[in-house]
């Protein structure tokens, strides 16, 4: 299987998005932004559909629409929103999702595109990653890693103790906006592999298991990256042998991972209580 260039591309692509999904997914879950993690790839779908219509790369379309939506979601500012902030953010996420899905369907209709193009956007096609797309993914990966490296300390501080961080002078609203840019870029990259419908599983599955284990931030993120990598690579291998889609194996694997981790935690709790 490794002698084929399309499989080599697929493994490299999975590596890039797994690292991003592991880190960004962990932060999204910690910041209680699972709805945004679910919505952004769907929003990216409409951008990809528009790009197909105009004749651009779908990945660029995904990034563009996710960035615009991410800006609007984060714009429901921490300061102006106060304690209403989470509710307003969720409402804006829902509105952005609704509007973009409608636009996406219209773009596909106008493009008069064959239904398999829409299926590819929705479910992903990791086995047909071209060198150009891989280069684009590499660029997104590098940009995200640089942004994460720069934001790391204030992002973690404002995620763990938002009130204290603000009192110390961290601009929580600016950090939220920057993080949504990061999330938009990462979810677009994930959608390229797992598709708009299932990239959520790669973002949230490994991160939810890491948080269930109550690990420290660094250990949790490393666990999340390794788990995402294991899910995507094993998904590729299983897909090769079974002919079932990669995203199917990723989503099933994510649920299984969380279930196993939950059982381990319950067992640990029982043993701890006995002692």
């Amino acid at each position: 299987m490794f002698e084929f260039s399309f499989m080599q591309h697929a493994f490299i692509g999975c590596f890039l998005v797994s690292v991003l999904a592991g880190i960004v997914g962990w932060f999204m879950l910690l910041r209680r932004q699972t709805f945004a993690a679910h919505a952004l790839p769907h929003i990216g779908f409409s951008g990809a559909a528009a790009a197909v219509w105009i004749g651009f790369s779908p990945l660029l379309g995904m990034i563009g629409s996710s960035l615009i939506a991410g800006f609007f979601i984060a714009h429901e500012g921490h300061k102006t929103g106060g304690s209403f902030h989470p509710l307003r953010r969720e409402t804006m996420t829902g509105l952005a999702l609704t509007a973009s899905l409608g636009l996406g369907v219209w773009c596909l209709h106008e493009a008069n595109t064959a239904s398999n193009q829409a299926t590819t956007l929705l479910f992903g096609d990791v086995l047909s990653l071209s060198t150009t797309t891989l280069m684009e993914l590499g660029g997104v990966f590098l940009l995200c890693i640089i942004l994460l490296g720069a934001l790391w300390r204030p992002l973690l501080f404002s995620s763990l103790s938002p009130d204290l961080a603000e009192a110390r002078g961290v601009s929580v609203s600016h950090i939220s906006r920057s993080f949504m840019i990061l999330a938009a870029l990462a979810t677009s990259a994930c959608s390229e592999i797992a598709g708009a419908l299932l990239s959520f599983s790669l973002m949230i599955g490994p991160a939810s298991a890491a948080l269930r284990l109550e690990l420290s931030p660094l250990k949790g993120i490393i666990f999340s990256i390794i788990a995402a990598l294991a899910l995507s690579w094993s998904g590729l291998i299983l897909s090769w042998f079974t002919d079932a889609p990669v995203s199917f194996w990723i989503s099933i694997g994510a649920v299984l991972l969380y279930s196993v981790v939950s059982c381990i935690q319950r067992l640990k709790l029982k043993l701890f209580n006995k002692v």
Partner: peptide
Amino acid sequence: EAAPMIPVIDHVIASISGTKWGFP
């Protein structure tokens, strides 16, 4: 209240130099 699943020590570590940019 923001992150109940994270160990205590990591909350305190994050508040030390949490206002500075970059990776610690």
